[in-house]
Design a protein around this nucleic acid. Structure first.
Lengths: 260, 260
DNA sequence: ACTAAATTATTAAATAATGATAATTTGAAT
DNA sequence: ATTCAAATTATCATTATTTAATAATTTAGT
């Protein structure tokens, strides 16, 4: 264990389910002597990436809140898409959860979300949550942008029930790519359905999706065209704004570089 | 430069004002050879703490969004206080911005906020933003909990206009400590006034504040008692919930330890 | 005030980081 | 497709840091 990995492995222990650890627990989990862990933890506490909690436990530190904010105000995808999620929700024919998501390692991460105030069911899509790569429209609309070779690498570790299952998945993906949008039913949350379109920007290396999730009980077939129309138009709008943000950044860098 | 600091120094370059950097720029800023920076950046990109943006620039990576979420769902202060901010806003006599804040190094950081939808003016208090230690009711209600010795260390670097200024500040702070609440006018944002109470939990090492910020133009003297009453009662409520969360955590740790 | 647990300090040995330079890859403009 | 500069990676001897066993100290709960 060396370099940044040393620190990352400790941070990765902290999860929603288990959000505080003692040095001894970390030491056991990583099979590393506690004197070493004590030293590393001390470093991370002084950097505010960890902080001590009650009873010799440690938890994640406020540095993450600070950097999260900077991302919120600077990440092109979040900046461009965030403001439209409420509008999309308001224009959808029934209550919905609306999500911007992107790749994170071999998972999909929601980077912004807006839920209609009266949406009743629980949904897994919340900002910062990692979602499975091969289930749900939100994920499909992202991975359908990825070319075959890289896709193979990405889904290498996914355990499909059978080869047939995997081939069907790939065939469906190919069809979705042609259509330009995705639909799935109950793949992530029982009783919910999802519609999604791709969001991309080559220059910024963005491969993402915009999706709306509905309660199956409220959904009627006649809603479908409106849903698709909304997603398609807001998808394009988000892409347009990403591009504007990209140009702003370019201009800014140009200015700051010529000042010197 | 060694240990975690190596990585933190790079991350600290990224700010709201300057959210993307090239390797060469980082190399210059930190006076470190670019071959070293390239190696470090590569590590951080693979850990998703940084990611490459367009034109050989790098920006903060999605790891921060993920860990921020875990904090949201696990930090006792955020968990306990977040749900009450809207209620506090709704019960205030005029539109307001309501903030939970805590110490972050020698600054004060807002960790949760709720703004009445119709609040018009801009305010500096937004989640994740660092605020000055010695200005604003939000900060005062935090530092008034700190005993003299530690307070001296904390404000050591603050530049007061004069020694008299500093002494007045300390005297006012002592008074506020007696009263149990703080009021300031226009110290952080022109045209805004702030009211705040302390939030603390000894076991969890929490020193924080709950504050309401109002537009001076809307404010009438008759609002004052209601504002104080709201802050006082919600402050106590938040402390009560922090304590319940503390006990939950204790119970959880007890269980997981006895399983083994 | 006592005690066990938590944390820090100290070390030589083991390991990793550094940075100058060379080699390679990438990407933008023909 | 070709070119060329800029970006990135690879190499490697030198230098500096990390490791982990142990001892010393501090902290926190009765």
């Amino acid at each position: 264990m060396s370099g940044f990995l040393r620190y990352k492995k400790i941070l990765d222990l902290f999860s929603e389910e288990r959000s505080s650890w003692t040095v001894l627990e970390i030491s056991k989990a990583l099979e590393t002597p506690s004197s070493t862990i004590y030293r590393i933890i001390r470093e991370m506490v002084s950097a505010e990436f960890l902080e001590s909690a009650a009873g010799s436990y440690f938890r994640l530190g406020p540095a993450f809140i600070k950097f999260n904010r900077i991302i919120n105000f600077s990440d092109p995808l979040v900046r461009a898409g965030q403001p439209f999620l409420k509008k999309l929700a308001d224009e959808n024919p029934i209550t919905s959860v609306n999500v911007l998501a992107r790749l994170y390692g071999n998972k999909v991460m929601c980077v912004a979300d807006y839920k209609s105030p009266s949406f009743k069911k629980n949904t897994s899509y919340q900002r910062g949550k990692l979602m499975p790569l091969i289930y749900g429209a939100t994920s499909r609309a992202i991975i359908m942008q990825i070319t075959n070779r890289k896709l193979q690498d990405l889904i290498y570790l996914e355990n499909f029930k059978s080869d047939e299952d995997k081939n069907n998945f790939l065939k469906d993906l190919k069809n979705d790519r042609k259509k330009g949008y995705c639909f799935t039913e109950g793949q992530v949350d029982k009783g919910l359905i999802g519609f999604a379109v791709s969001i991309s920007n080559k220059k910024l290396g963005i491969k993402a999706s915009l999706s709306s999730i509905f309660d199956l009980d409220e959904f009627l077939l006649e809603h479908e065209p409106i849903i698709y129309a909304n997603l398609a138009s807001y998808g394009l709008l988000v892409e347009k704004y990403i591009n504007e943000i990209f140009e702003d950044i370019q201009k800014y860098h140009h200015e700051t570089n010529s000042i010197r």
